Simulated assay, not measured.
Amino acid sequence: MATEIYAVQMTPPQSTARRNSSGLGRDIEIIELLGSDEAVAEGGLGVMRIAQLTGRDKAVISRTMSTLADAELVVRDETTMNYRLGSRLFAIAARTTEASLVSRARPHLRNIAQSTRETTHLCVLRGGNVLTVLSELSPHEFRTTGWEGVTTAAWRTPSGRVLISDWDRASLTRWYHEHGRDQPLVGPLNPSMAAAGFAVLETPPENKAIVRDLDSLLVELQRIRERGYATLDEELELGVVGASAPITDFTGHIVAAINVSAPKSRIGGQLDRLGAYVAQAARELSSSLGAPTAMA
């Protein structure tokens, strides 16, 4: 889900204070205009309209827009010639959101790890797969590994399946065709995991595989929506089980997932009980992010 840049009501400036401000201030003014209701409705704004709204010379605006486009802060539609907010701006916004999320989630993850006495992770979707941005380790000497900074295939993990569980079918179909056969480790291991010789199963055991094709993925996602959590039983690592649940923000959309992983020898037949606990913990964190009551 793309991070939203909020719209502002747009009227031509009435004073020259902003118009005669620094170059950075003038660039920010243009970026704000491209996030306005009018720009969103029209699919962007052209040089003439931006010049009109800012009260600045068309040639100056044209040069400014070229500079912003080179920095990927704005992008130009080759058909309409209108400018829209660019991918780099959204990427910066997404990183800011993630930093805030990690800060909010840290005490929650610490409480979950202390309550379950198992390793707990905060995961987000990045490039169609799962990035672990925070881990709290189990106090047990025998425990699962912290995954901070590691990217894994979403189709192989409960966190990944949770993170896409609120998508529509068309989006899921596109995603599956692109990522439904990604390798279990999409990015490199962190140094501590690599030094320990850590490895995952290249393919899930036949009797443990949850996702075999698009249809089985859709069935599993419906199950996640009904239960409020997803589970894993030695699908990625031998002897390791886990449960994940979605975190929603004030828009009601899933922005992250909590995952608790543990040796199967300690969890035994209580995996669904763990899943229900993680789902409740995720609802509490979602509430702190302003999620609607029905979602939290």
Rank of each mutant, 00 (worst) to 15 (best):
T54H: 09
D77I: 07
L236C: 01
R266I: 07
Q114D: 06
S62R: 08
A105P: 05
E234K: 06
A39C: 03
L285Y: 01
E234D: 09
R126F: 05
T152L: 11
L271V: 15
S216N: 03
P292H: 09
D57W: 04
T16Y: 10
Y229H: 10
L289G: 11
A59D: 15
A71P: 02
A281V: 05
H140L: 12
P204I: 09
E148V: 09
A194R: 15
G252A: 05
L221H: 03
D77S: 11
E178T: 14
I31Y: 05
L53I: 13
F142E: 05
V255A: 02
L137S: 13
S87L: 14
P107F: 07
E235M: 11
G127H: 10
E118G: 03
E220P: 02
V75H: 07
D70R: 10
D27N: 12
L217W: 01
V74T: 00
I210K: 05
L238H: 11
I224C: 15
I5R: 04
S165Q: 09
G128D: 06
S100R: 14
V74E: 02
Q52T: 10
D249C: 01
G242E: 11
G180K: 02
E148A: 14
R19G: 03
L232S: 02
R18Q: 01
G128A: 13
T80M: 07
R26I: 03
I164E: 01
A94D: 12
N20C: 10
A99W: 07
L85D: 06
G197S: 09
Q14P: 04
Q114L: 08
R18T: 08
A2N: 14
A51G: 07
A2R: 15
F90C: 03
T157S: 11
N259G: 08
G35K: 05
M295F: 02
A51N: 09
T145Q: 07
K58S: 12
A59K: 15
L131C: 03
R84K: 12
M1N: 06
E148P: 06
K264F: 03
P292M: 04
G149N: 01
W175P: 06
P205I: 07
E141P: 09
D213W: 13
M48S: 12
V40W: 04
K58M: 14
E284W: 08
V124L: 09
R56T: 01
S159W: 01
A194K: 12
A257K: 04
A154F: 05
F142P: 00
A51K: 12
T97I: 06
G127W: 03
T293Q: 15
Q183E: 15
I5A: 14
V255Y: 05
A256H: 06
L125K: 07
V186Q: 03
T157Q: 12
T203R: 15
G252D: 03
R174P: 02
